[in-house]
């Protein structure tokens, strides 16, 4: 069980690192928000799943699942609000320069 949870946590950390690289590399707000949503959806899911496996079946596991579902419901709302505010305040999405 410990091996399984370590594997899940390492996979989650991989996605978190990829998302951080994306936040540094990508060119504008709209693209960076994709990287942040990658963190939220898969990285947090894998890490919390690994922690739940390590805890075993307990009331803490139930609470971890509550936090996870809360993250899944709330994070799209925040991302959508940010993108809508950016779009309505007149920011133009970045495009690749066509030669």
């Amino acid at each position: 069980m410990t091996i399984l949870s370590i594997a899940f946590i390492v996979a989650g950390l991989f996605f978190l690192v990829v998302a951080a690289i994306g936040v540094i590399r990508l060119p504008d707000v709209f693209c960076r928000s994709h990287a942040v949503s990658l963190t939220d959806s898969l990285g947090a899911f894998l890490m919390l799943l690994g922690i739940a496996f390590y805890e075993g079946l307990d009331k803490n596991t139930l609470k971890i699942l509550v936090v996870l579902s809360l993250l899944y419901i709330l994070n799209p709302v925040i991302a959508h609000a940010t993108i809508r505010a950016a779009l309505r305040s007149g920011l133009k999405p970045w495009r690749k320069e066509t030669p």
Binding site: N75, P76, V77, H80, I83, R84, L87
Partner: peptide, 26 residues
């Protein structure tokens, strides 16, 4: 629908008007 679009990495709902959605895709 909008929540699923935003939850999927790479696509984000930017604007909703009745049943027309503006989506920013990577």
């Amino acid at each position: 629908f909008g929540n699923s679009i935003t939850l999927t990495p790479g696509t984000i709902t930017a604007e909703v008007d009745r049943n027309t959605l503006i989506v920013h895709a990577m």
